[in-house]
Amino acid sequence: MVKRIVAVFILFALPCLSVRAGPASRTFQEEDASVLQAALRSQCQTEDGYVLLSSTTVAPEKTDDMGEADESGAFADLKRRNGAAASLPESVSCKGARLHREQDILRFFDRAPIAAGKVSLNEAWKKLHESFPGATGWTSVSLPGYSAERDIAVVYVAHHRGSLCGQGYYLYLHRLGDQWKVLVRFPIWTS
Rank of each mutant, 00 (worst) to 15 (best):
G96V: 08
A24N: 09
D151R: 09
Q45C: 05
V35W: 02
A153N: 08
T56S: 14
T136H: 03
H174W: 10
S147F: 03
D110S: 11
I5M: 07
V2L: 12
Q45L: 14
F75A: 00
S54I: 08
D110K: 14
K126G: 10
Q37K: 15
W189N: 10
L52M: 13
G83W: 03
R81C: 03
A38E: 02
G83I: 00
S54A: 14
S163P: 13
A38Y: 05
L173Y: 04
G162K: 00
E102D: 12
I114E: 06
S18K: 11
V58A: 15
G22E: 13
P23A: 12
R161W: 04
A153T: 07
V154M: 06
A112E: 14
V58N: 06
E47D: 09
A39L: 03
Q103M: 13
L36T: 05
V182P: 05
A86V: 00
F108E: 02
R41V: 09
K95Y: 04
K79F: 00
V6C: 06
Q103W: 07
G137T: 02
V154Q: 01
G73Q: 07
T136W: 01
C16S: 11
A112S: 11
L128D: 08
P113H: 06
L121G: 10
P133V: 03
L183T: 08
V8W: 09
S54G: 15
H174N: 10
L121I: 11
A33W: 00
R101W: 09
R150P: 06
R150I: 07
F75H: 00
A13T: 06
F9A: 15
G166L: 05
F186D: 13
R175A: 04
L40Q: 01
S18C: 12
T56M: 13
F75Q: 00
G137W: 04
A7Y: 03
I5K: 09
R20P: 02
I5F: 06
G96F: 04
A74Y: 01
A21E: 12
F28A: 14
I105Q: 03
D64L: 13
L11C: 10
A21K: 11
V51M: 14
L164W: 10
H100R: 12
P113Y: 05
R20G: 12
E90S: 08
W180N: 03
S191G: 13
S142Y: 01
R41K: 14
P23G: 14
E31N: 02
A69N: 14
V182R: 10
N82M: 02
M1K: 05
G166Y: 01
A158Q: 10
C165L: 12
T136R: 15
A84E: 15
A85Y: 04
W180P: 02
S18N: 13
L171E: 06
T63E: 15
G145L: 02
K3D: 12
L164N: 14
T190Q: 11
L121D: 09
K118S: 07
E123N: 07
C16F: 14
S147Y: 03
I105V: 08
V184G: 06
V119A: 11
G145I: 00
D110V: 11
T57K: 01
A112Q: 11
W180V: 04
A148R: 15
Q167S: 14
S25V: 15
A21F: 11
P187H: 09
K62L: 11
K126W: 09
G168Y: 01
S55K: 11
Y50D: 04
A85E: 15
